[in-house]
Simulated scan of single mutants.
Amino acid sequence: MDKPPIKAKNNKTPRSQNMSHQVEKKVALKLYAKRHKHPGVWFGLGLMGIVGWSVALPTLLGIALGIWLEASISDSRAYTLIFLLAGLTLGCFIAWNWVSKEYAAMHSPTVTMKANTKAPTKAPTKANTVPKTKTSKENE
């Protein structure tokens, strides 16, 4: 005879636990998004500006340093090109780091769930909602 499979005590398989965790995470993100409205177009333009300047400024500083080195040192090396690429690389790293931190902050359920969780309340049951009536012995 084949034995029936043993069920877990909490009647949830690991797959259903994973799915319920994903659903809870998405619900928390949606609730957070409803409470904290998206700033709109200006937020997007500001984000593009910050990312753009974080790339452009190191690149321009690298070009300026390269031009200054070429003017002060008479050498056959192309310092402008070298420092342009170095500034561009540094700017892209700064922008990537900043955007990844913002993405992590927006999609972190631990931050939103900690702020939104409250102590669990006891669900009303028949025992704690129906008032007790006095028996005939208690009335005497």
Rank of each mutant, 00 (worst) to 15 (best):
A78M: 08
S76A: 15
L45F: 14
G49I: 13
K37T: 05
S76I: 11
S100D: 13
K122P: 02
G52S: 14
L65G: 15
A115Y: 04
S20E: 14
L29G: 03
K26Q: 09
T129M: 15
L61V: 12
A8Y: 00
G66T: 09
T135W: 09
N116H: 13
S54C: 10
F43G: 05
E140V: 04
K118N: 08
D75M: 04
A95M: 11
F93P: 07
E138C: 01
T117G: 08
P124N: 10
L47C: 08
A71E: 00
P4D: 02
K9T: 09
L90G: 01
G66C: 11
E140C: 04
S54T: 08
T110C: 12
Y103G: 00
A104R: 06
T13W: 04
A95K: 14
G87A: 05
K122Q: 11
K7C: 05
Y79L: 01
G40K: 02
V111D: 01
K37G: 04
Q22L: 11
M106Y: 04
T59D: 05
S16P: 01
C92I: 15
A78L: 14
K37L: 07
V51S: 11
N18G: 00
L47S: 14
V111K: 10
E24W: 07
P5G: 06
L61W: 12
A104Y: 00
P120H: 10
E140I: 11
P131L: 12
L90Q: 07
I73V: 10
A119I: 11
M106T: 02
A64W: 03
E102H: 06
Y32G: 04
I82D: 13
K126Q: 05
V51M: 15
L45K: 11
Y32E: 07
G91C: 15
R77A: 03
I6K: 15
I50G: 02
K101C: 09
D2H: 10
K30L: 06
K25C: 03
L84V: 11
L90M: 11
E70C: 02
G40F: 01
L90V: 12
S54D: 01
S136D: 01
R35D: 13
M19F: 13
L61N: 11
D2Y: 09
F93D: 15
R35G: 05
T125Q: 08
I67P: 01
L88Q: 04
L29D: 04
M19T: 08
H21C: 00
N10I: 06
S108M: 00
T59H: 08
W68A: 09
R15L: 09
N18Q: 07
K7N: 12
S136A: 05
G91K: 15
H107G: 06
I67K: 10
M19A: 10
N139P: 02
P39I: 01
L65N: 15
T135E: 03
V55Q: 10
L65P: 09
S16L: 09
P39C: 01
G52E: 09
L29R: 07
T59L: 15
N10R: 03
K7H: 10
T110W: 12
H36E: 08
E140P: 08
K134W: 10
S74Y: 07
N11Q: 10
P4R: 13
S20T: 05
K101Q: 14
R15C: 02
F93W: 15
P14R: 01
E70I: 02
I6S: 12
I73R: 11
E138L: 04
Y32H: 08
L69A: 08
K34P: 03
A8N: 03
M113G: 00
P14A: 00
A33C: 10
I94T: 14
K9F: 04
S108C: 03
S136K: 06
